[in-house]
Nucleic acid binder design. Sequence first.
DNA 1: TGTTGACTGTTATGATATAACGTTAGATAG
DNA 2: CTATCTAACGTTATATCATAACAGTCAACA
Lengths: 136, 136
Amino acid sequence: MRARENGVRLTPVRRRTLEILLEAHGALGAYDVLERLSAEGYGTQPPVAYRALNFLVENGFAHRIQRLNAFTACVHPARDHRAAFLICARCNSVTEACADSFTQAMIEAASAVGFQLERSTIEAVGLCSACAGKPA
Amino acid sequence: MRARENGVRLTPVRRRTLEILLEAHGALGAYDVLERLSAEGYGTQPPVAYRALNFLVENGFAHRIQRLNAFTACVHPARDHRAAFLICARCNSVTEACADSFTQAMIEAASAVGFQLERSTIEAVGLCSACAGKPA
DNA sequence: TGTTGACTGTTATGATATAACGTTAGATAG
DNA sequence: CTATCTAACGTTATATCATAACAGTCAACA
Ligand SMILES: [Zn+2]
Ligand SMILES: [Zn+2]
Ligand SMILES: [Zn+2]
Ligand SMILES: [Zn+2]
């Protein structure tokens, strides 16, 4: 199979991994993904999940959430974008927000101190609108 | 010993842990810290390091760098502040920068979508001024 | 048709982090 | 001055996250 456009091959494991992320609401750990993959007849060992997830991240189909050691499907995979993530401390939901303007400002601020910024991670923890309404 | 001000007790392990972070240039992993602590007669097991490090982070003496699974001493521990970290992809140095204005803007942007932001993590990867000058 | 390279799978191991429990020593109430 | 309490410390054991290294498969293609 000739690579789609820029050499991207969305093979069965990779596609299924992406679907698993899409089906999940919020982020999934690599071992959660692995559990599902292996239940469906794919490989049973960690590298299977990590390779597929890393592929998705590198090709803009998913993002890694550092704070949660987890992965989440990108909500607008086609476009080049910088994302920020709003992580609910109560229900663990993860919402992807556009951070293009913040990132641009950060690139400029960083360059003022001589730092040549390549990519940034913005992860915020707080309460989602659903949880903020509820009592403690 | 009556707690300093707000109940903070900088015990020997904790103080030494902070010194170790200060002596290091850049961030240290918990096991790096543990190695030094145990060589000096403190406990030899992971919880010793993790407890001291978590204490320092919770009390504003240090920050955790998610991307590196590492810790770094705060450069201005006295003041309440939001930090951003500039991580050099080449030499792994970590520079703490003030992110108060970014954070404020993010709080407002988040609240516009109903998210009540509590704390955020901003970590940027790129080239420090020293490394940007050098060739590949 | 033989070689190549991307992909998938495996075993084994490494790296990071916490649960649970016993001990110690300073603070405080009686 | 005791008895009691509690924060902090240390340990063992285990959980969780991640990668190195290598073998088999298969389509592309010279
Ligand atoms: Zn995205
Ligand atoms: Zn929530
Ligand atoms: Zn700081
Ligand atoms: Zn550098």
